[in-house]
Design a protein around this nucleic acid. Sequence first.
DNA 1: TGTACATCAGTGAACGCGCGTTCACTGATGTAC
DNA 2: TGTACATCAGTGAACGCGCGTTCACTGATGTAC
Lengths: 202, 202
Amino acid sequence: MSKKSYHHGDLRAALLQAAETELSEKGIEAFSLRGVAKRAGVSHAAPAHHFGEAKGLLTALAAIGFQRFVETQQRRQQKAPSNPKAQMAAAGLGYVDFAMENQALFRLMFSSQQPDKNDATLNAASSAAFDKLVKDIQHIGKSDPYHDSAAMVDVMATWAIVHGLADLLIAGRMKSLLNMEKTDRETILSEIILRNCSFNSN
Amino acid sequence: MSKKSYHHGDLRAALLQAAETELSEKGIEAFSLRGVAKRAGVSHAAPAHHFGEAKGLLTALAAIGFQRFVETQQRRQQKAPSNPKAQMAAAGLGYVDFAMENQALFRLMFSSQQPDKNDATLNAASSAAFDKLVKDIQHIGKSDPYHDSAAMVDVMATWAIVHGLADLLIAGRMKSLLNMEKTDRETILSEIILRNCSFNSN
DNA sequence: TGTACATCAGTGAACGCGCGTTCACTGATGTAC
DNA sequence: TGTACATCAGTGAACGCGCGTTCACTGATGTAC
């Protein structure tokens, strides 16, 4: 709040926010630390005090992304009926929602290159997202995917279909879905997600 | 073949090949025309005669990618039984194969930014890939997805599941699948692809 | 409570680098006669 | 078939730019006494 303060106060958080804007506006290939610093209103050498290199910043950003990713799904689920299938569909719609509203970040999160795969925070955040999926499916199928390989196949199938929908929509494919009203699109997305979830459930 | 020839002969093709190597080794964010020229053994100003800017080169590369993408699927299908479901599974395995063997190119093809979306060659190539998918599914469901919206939903569902599997495998998620022998992996992938294709088929 | 001092966070000038682009050039190829 | 000339494809030096990185610095914050 100190207007004239020499020190920023919470530059780390400000850098992360600026990085997200930079990423979505410039894209991953034009992303630069100098650009992020400029956006945060800070000298271009300042970020080095918090993030050694762009990779570190992107890794932290990806970790935050996974947290928000899970939150987006949970927010959807709170508004949905509590039966397992409705919860599954809601989570799937949240998955797609997050991807469409955070395209560059979503791609970064599922990129194989940029973020540091050995980063503990990132790994914890992405594992949490995966565990959430496993639990949602467990509620449908009743058996624990971690101990039942058939149930794990169900997990992979469901994950793939939701992820595929999200990635294809981002890519601008599936024009017919993109051109619909959001509610119509969600009706069809739910149908697609749930048709795949008829396993083990009765 | 002319060793000492001043003119390259087919620099355009050589540049495309070099660009593919550059893309897979450096990644999209470190991709540069100078790097491509160096790889092709040519001065760094030479590419400008064929491709105005990196974007044009990447667009042409994406178009070639879609052609090879379809070919990979067809090659798979030729080795498979001729019934519609086996053909569908084979195409899906080809889809995943291509993605895993051409990770950066696959990501480029389904990127929303880089390639020029108004490029006629690219659009033709990507449409051909989509049409192939539609036809494969039509052979299972019997009704034309272009005239039957329920069948189009089938197309989207199948596309999503195959694409999702491909993208998640590339991203290094689905560790359990990645750690398997290729044949075991393909058994499970086929199962996942086909479980989704039980629509309309009997 | 006040003073001294260490530490920390951010500044701004400077650097070297690889990039895309420009430009005058050169040598090979193709065409007209 | 031979010659003249235009066009085309690639060269290599030069440029300006934004990048990451370094470094001496400055001013605020925190701590010891």
